[in-house]
C-alpha cells in the first residue's frame, strides 16, 4: 500500500520541526503506601499553589513536580491548576525568586519522583497512570483522566 502524500508531508513537517507528538495520558497522584491521609482535588490544587503546606497530621508535605516538558505535567497542571505547564512552572519559579515560596516543589523525572515517594511517608507527587500502576510501595490517591 502506498503511503498517502498528506500523511508523509505531515510526518516530514513534524520531523523538520523537531516535534515529537507527546502522548497525553491519564495521571495518578501518588503517595507512600503507608500514608492513608487524603486530600480532595481542590486541596491538591492549593498544595501546588503553596497555600496548603502540611498533611492533616501536621507534617510538612514533600511536594514533587515533573519537569515542564513531561506530558504528564501538562495534563496535571491543566486539569488541577487550570494552567499550562509553562505558566505553572513560571509561577513556581517566581514564588521562589521573590522569596514568597512557602513549600517549594522538587522537580524530578518520574523514576526519581516514584523513588522519593516510596522512601518518604510525607511525600506527594504525580506520574503517568500506567507508570503508577507498575510501582510497588505507592498508593494512588487520585486519577486525573486526560
Amino acid at each position: 500500500m502506498r503511503p498517502r502524500p498528506a500523511s508523509l508531508t505531515a510526518a516530514l513537517l513534524l520531523l523538520l520541526a523537531g516535534i515529537s507528538p507527546a502522548v497525553a495520558e491519564s495521571v495518578a497522584i501518588i503517595v507512600n503506601s503507608e500514608n492513608q491521609q487524603n486530600f480532595t482535588m481542590q486541596e491538591i490544587k492549593y498544595i501546588y499553589s503553596e497555600y496548603i503546606v502540611s498533611w492533616p497530621s501536621g507534617k510538612r508535605i514533600e511536594r514533587y513536580d515533573l519537569p515542564p516538558d513531561d506530558p504528564a505535567r501538562e495534563v496535571f497542571t491543566r486539569k488541577v491548576l487550570g494552567l499550562s505547564a509553562r505558566v505553572a512552572a513560571l509561577e513556581e519559579q517566581s514564588r521562589s525568586v521573590n522569596n514568597s515560596a512557602r513549600n517549594p516543589s522538587r522537580e524530578k523525572r518520574a523514576p526519581l519522583v516514584a523513588a522519593a515517594i516510596v522512601r518518604s511517608a510525607n511525600a506527594l507527587g504525580y506520574v503517568s497512570l500506567p507508570y503508577a500502576q507498575s510501582l510497588v510501595g505507592v498508593r494512588i490517591m487520585h486519577v486525573i483522566k486526560e
Partner: peptide
Amino acid sequence: REFTPAGLWNVDHYPPY
C-alpha cells in the same frame, strides 16, 4: 530588608516574570 509587601507588582516584580 525586604520588598515592601504591598499590592501585586511590588511583590511579584522580577522582569523574567
